[in-house]
Structure formats: structure tokens, C-alpha cells
Nucleic acid binder design. Structure first.
Lengths: 226, 226
DNA sequence: ACAGTTGCGGAGTGATTCGCTCCGCAATTA
DNA sequence: TAATTGCGGAGCGAATCACTCCGCAACTGT
């Protein structure tokens, strides 16, 4: 069961990645009530394959949190490794938003964290504190902003209600527009952290259909998962 | 349990308000899967009272959306009535965040909107467009920001993952700190819309316990609803 | 004082969905 | 061809869902 030469082990790994990605997406949309069936369906595997890898639903979520914490720490240390204080801070923020600790918020507090998890969290917090302090000393970060402010802002930006609704309704034709719009919103919000005025808003101005579509039920009838 | 000196009509109105408020809160936390039982419990009434006022769960949600749309339009027109373009814009943004159209996003698209709803939405959109245009002409709004950018930013800020988790775990002692922290985050993010640099971050710097508590399960054992 | 009215809380109900198990099957190996 | 291995998903008991119904308390008219 360890390392077999060349078998379908690569498909196994691929399935596992798909499973983790699907779990994070479904968790972001459905919250705590996310069902294992929908996770497996989104990953394109059967529930049997899910339960062969994770003995229970909670075990899968724990693994997810552990991975997110690792990405969180990595993002912070990478940011610290950068020379420019502001760029380092933004690297951390962007990566942290992307890895989505915010989307894991519904799971938080539902199980006792392992020692490894608390350890990773502490290391990450220390790195972020240094990141913030460095940016303050360079006068590029707005005065008064604390690490907690930054983390809460990141969490606030982690979710994407618009993209969630789009994928819930299966309107794939608007995915690109939604992603562009989301990047603009994130850029605007993060620029509120700047001590100096920001440049122009990046990307294309979003079309109006993104906002207008929200209230009308989907045409095709494709709702929920698959 | 119900002790009122005069006739119950005032209790009826009070129950109705509590019902609507509870519905919005539960909807924000649980999404589409919010159960009527949890809504009634949070409002402090029985499910029977809920169903006497709203024939079905969807009818309650529709009423909720209608109210949110009205508040949305009111906020925009009030903002337009103000003399200062930036203050008017911020008044709209704050009020819109508070009334929480973003927390209604999960319901959006699950039913056909009534004529009154589309009408309110169109009026509101026009008012917001004027609000944005006026702010641009006064050079107080960052160049390139469109009404859709603004609305999506507002939606992004409408949810409060931290407060949701706190109330899910029943940690009432941190409510004030969480509200303060949330106001700071909102202020920071909205300042990203400014053309000119912003002042200091309002409120007290948030304590670290707000972020540290997230991963440990609640001590008392009070979880979920009730 | 007392029958009538009104709105209340929540136990009960059938249908649905949940997490999870188990098994037939196809693909791979020897 | 026989053995092995991981796969998808039907199926299971338990839990939860939206919703109904009824006994009860608060209040009114006479």
C-alpha cells in the first residue's frame, strides 16, 4: 500500500487532488452542510473512493484545514523573502486569499485542532506580524493597521458569492467575467491598506450583466450540483 | 411566557420583526439550507407562528428580498440627497452593507422576481449610477471605478464570517470586539475607493483573541442553533 | 362568571437527505 | 485464465426537512 512501481497510482493521486479541490469548492458554497455526495460528484469520483482515502467526513475537512494552514505559512514566508515590503505583503495577501482560509471558516471550531495545526498557525501569525511591521517601518502600510485587521480583511475577501452563485446555476459563460470582476474588487479593497495613493484599477470594467443576472432564475434549469 | 398588558397586536408586530431579522441572520449563516425551525427558534417563536404569517418558506424569503431591495433603494436616494458626493456615496455603501443584500445572495435566482422587485432594483441601480457619476465628477472617487465594482464590493463586505462563527458558537463575550473589528475592515476596504489618501483607521485596534479563537471548539459546548 | 375568539408553541408526519457500507465490475498483473 | 485491486454507486438506518394540527393561555363581550 506504500509505493508501487507504475500502476494506477498516478490516477489515485489525481483523484486525491480532485477530491481536495472539490471539497474546498463545495465547502465554500454549502458551508457546514456540504454533503459528501456532492463533494464526490464534483470531483468526478464515487463516494466509495472518497471513503477509501478518508475514513470520515471530518477527517477530510481536517486534512483540508491542514493544507490551508500550510499554504498560509508558505505565503507569509514567501512574502517575507521578497525585498519590497509592499510587494511582499501583497504576495502574502493574494496567496492567502486564493488558498481560502476564509472558505474554511464554517469548519473552524468543529473539531479539536492537532498540535501540528496550532504550531503552523503560530508560525504563520509570527511571519505575518513581521510582514506588517516591516511594511509599517517602510511607511507603505497605512498607519494603525494591525495584523488582525489584515487577516480579517483577507478572510472577508476569500469568499466569492458571485462565483458561487454562477457555479450553482451552471452559467459557465460568465465565469471569466466574474473572475475579472473579483480581481478588481480585491485590488480595490487591498488598496485601502496603502499609505500612498493607488494606481488605476486593474483589468477590464465589468459588464452590467454580472449584476443583473443575479435575481433571475437560471434559464436552462441546471441548478445545484450536477 | 408572553406577558403583555394590552392586546397582543403589538406583540404580533414585534414577532414579525423578530422573524424577519432572525431569517436574515440564519440565512447569512446557513445559506439556502437554512431551516424554518432554526429561524423560528432564533426569533423566539414557534414554527406555527411563522407559518401563520408566511404560507411557505419561499414566501418568507421573497418578503425578505423585497425589504432588502427597498432598503437598497432608500439608501441610494438618501445618499443622493446629501450635498457632499463622497459622504453620499459612503452613506449608501454603509446602509447597503448593513441591510445585507449580500447575505441574500444564496436565495437569489431561486424564484422568479416579481414586477415590484425588478422595478425597485432598476430604480436603485439608476440612483447608484448617478451617485457614482457625481463622485467621479467631483474627483473624489478613484478613476475607473464602475457602479458594478461598487456593488460587488458592497456584496463582498455584507457577510461577516467572524460574527457568524461567534453566534454559531454562542460566544457572546466577543460580540462587541467583533463588531468593532468588522467596522475597521469595512472602512479599510471602502477607502480603496478613494481618489485621495484616507485618514486613520477608525475604532480601537482589534485584540488578538478574535483571530486566535477561531480554531478551538467552543468551551461551553453551545453549538449550532438555540 | 363564562362561552367565544384569537394567536400561540411545539409535538407529530411523511418525505427527503444525510453519512457511510458494501458489492459487482472493469482494469491490471502473473 | 485466475487473482488482485481500486472503482462507482445502489442501498441502509438515522437524522432532518418543510409543513400540519391541536391543546392552551390570553383576552373580549355580555
Amino acid at each position: 500500500m506504500t509505493s508501487s512501481r507504475s500502476w494506477r497510482s498516478e490516477e489515485v493521486a489525481r483523484n486525491d487532488r480532485a477530491l481536495l479541490r472539490a471539497a474546498r469548492e463545495v465547502l465554500a458554497v454549502d458551508g457546514v452542510h456540504a454533503s459528501v455526495a456532492s463533494i464526490a460528484a464534483r470531483a468526478g469520483v464515487g463516494v466509495g473512493s472518497l471513503y477509501r482515502r478518508y475514513r470520515t467526513k471530518q477527517e477530510l475537512f481536517q486534512r483540508l484545514c491542514l493544507i490551508a494552514l500550510r499554504e498560509y505559512l508558505d505565503a507569509a514566508t514567501e512574502g517575507l523573502a521578497m525585498d519590497d515590503p509592499w510587494e511582499g505583503l501583497m504576495h502574502y495577501a493574494m496567496a492567502s486569499i486564493r488558498s481560502g482560509p476564509g472558505s474554511l471558516a464554517p469548519v473552524a471550531g468543529t473539531f479539536e485542532p492537532t498540535d501540528e495545526m496550532t504550531d503552523l498557525a503560530e508560525q504563520g501569525d509570527r511571519a505575518v506580524a513581521r510582514l506588517v511591521e516591516r511594511a509599517h517601518q517602510a511607511k507603505v502600510l497605512r498607519a494603525g493597521v494591525t495584523p488582525v485587521d489584515l487577516e480579517l480583511l483577507i478572510e472577508q475577501l476569500s469568499k466569492s458569492p458571485l462565483q458561487e452563485q454562477l457555479q450553482r446555476q451552471g452559467r459557465t459563460e460568465l465565469y471569466d467575467a466574474a473572475r475579472n470582476a473579483r480581481e478588481r474588487v480585491i485590488a480595490i479593497a487591498l488598496d485601502g491598506l496603502r499609505a500612498v495613493p493607488a494606481g488605476p484599477v486593474p483589468g477590464q470594467p465589468p459588464g452590467y450583466e454580472l449584476f443583473a443576472m443575479r435575481w433571475v432564475p437560471p434559464a436552462g434549469g441546471a441548478q445545484q450540483s450536477e
